[in-house]
């Protein structure tokens, strides 16, 4: 069991989300930064749909009432145990009774904590993701509070293999970690570009030339009203050539739509399933992780690529994630054979 001894700003239980319910108006939900969530699970040998904790801007203090294998990915909240920093992007074995402290994210917005076996949560329409607006799923459908007790599921065999090695090597602060770590997100994103890669949306041509230029050249600031539903940007106003009535249509993660005030909204995990605003652009899947890490007040730029490029980047991105999961399994089993750790 893990006790929340001091809650963060907004910490929720998240998994891969709900699939197949959008036709009923149900948001897919799930981890906002799906790459960080998946890598956290991969690092310790969890299955892909094991639930993790998603911390936002300011992390929690967690008290481990039993030993556990964990991993931390996403934004760096300077996690520590008794003043000693915990390394990220790799398996960490923590002894019973230890307190994990997460601080403010220095960069990025969302941190993910995976725990062996995955975190237990209320199941709602096939997923344990916390659905905040419906007050369902996850931990009683809400963000974690002081005194909440988190339960983990039974361990996977790879969890055990990693744990069994690390538990004999704990330091004075009661934790141990592997010498190897997962690559940075930029490895999966194929190239290191600060811009968010987008391709034209269905209503791109309806916008006037100045607006299209402004969107591609200008900087857009992440507004303070952004949340898991979407990012509200502040920047140069975007307008249509002619005022047009748009019929409500399905929208998806990364859809950039522009309401009448001309300020773009980028849709995230807890989005509505349909939208009636003109859709200017669509973020390429490969950069979903980047948008989920935009902090309030942070400036960002967009770079137009083609739909075909976005597809290629996605295939490459997925291949690398698969390779990474395979490499972790190999690494653990090789080192067991060699008697390393």
């Amino acid at each position: 069991m893990i006790e929340v001894t001091k809650p963060g700003l907004l910490t929720t239980i998240q998994d891969l989300g709900r699939r197949g319910y959008q036709k009923y108006g149900v948001s897919p939900g799930g981890a906002a930064d799906m790459l960080a969530h998946r890598l956290a699970n991969i690092a310790i040998g969890n299955v892909a749909d094991a639930a993790t904790l998603e911390m936002t801007l300011q992390g929690d203090e967690l008290s481990l009432q039993e030993a556990a294998l964990i991993s931390i990915t996403g934004a760096d909240m300077n996690p520590e145990i008794d003043g000693k920093p915990l390394p990220m992007w790799r398996p960490v074995y923590v002894e019973k009774g230890k307190k994990l402290l997460f601080r403010n994210a220095g960069q990025g917005l969302r941190t993910y904590v995976a725990i062996e076996g995955g975190i237990q949560g209320d199941l709602f329409l096939g997923s344990t993701s916390t659905y905040l607006s419906m007050e369902a799923g996850g931990y009683s459908g809400r963000a974690l509070k002081e005194g909440d007790m988190l339960q983990k599921n039974g361990r996977y065999s790879l969890n055990e293999e990693i744990s069994d090695r690390l538990k004999h090597q704990t330091n004075d602060q009661g934790f141990a970690y592997t010498p190897w770590r997962l690559p940075d997100p930029s490895f999966f994103q194929e190239e290191i570009v600060p811009e968010i890669r987008v391709f034209p949306g269905p209503h791109y041509q309806l916008f006037d030339a100045e607006s299209r230029q402004a969107f591609e050249r200008g900087a857009y600031q992440t507004g303070s009203k952004s949340d898991r539903m979407g990012i509200r940007f502040d920047g140069e106003k975007l307008t249509l050539r002619n005022q047009e009535e748009i019929i409500s249509e399905p929208v998806t993660f990364g859809t950039i739509q522009v309401p009448a005030n001309g300020q773009p909204i980028l849709l995230l995990a807890d989005r509505q399933t349909t939208g009636g605003y003109p859709k200017l652009a669509q973020v390429a899947s490969v950069d979903f992780s980047k948008v989920a890490q935009l902090r309030p007040g942070e400036e960002t730029k967009f770079r137009m690529i083609t739909h075909r490029e976005a597809e290629q980047l996605f295939l490459c991105f997925e291949d690398r994630i698969q390779q990474c999961a395979l490499a972790v399994r190999r690494k653990v089993r090789e080192e067991m054979k060699d008697g390393k750790y």
Binding site: F199, P202, E249, P250, V251, T252, F253, G254, T255, Q282, A284, S285, H307, A310, E311, F314
Partner: peptide, 8 residues
């Protein structure tokens, strides 16, 4: 295309 893994 809708996204790079969906169409309308």
């Amino acid at each position: 295309p809708l996204g790079d893994r969906s169409f309308f």
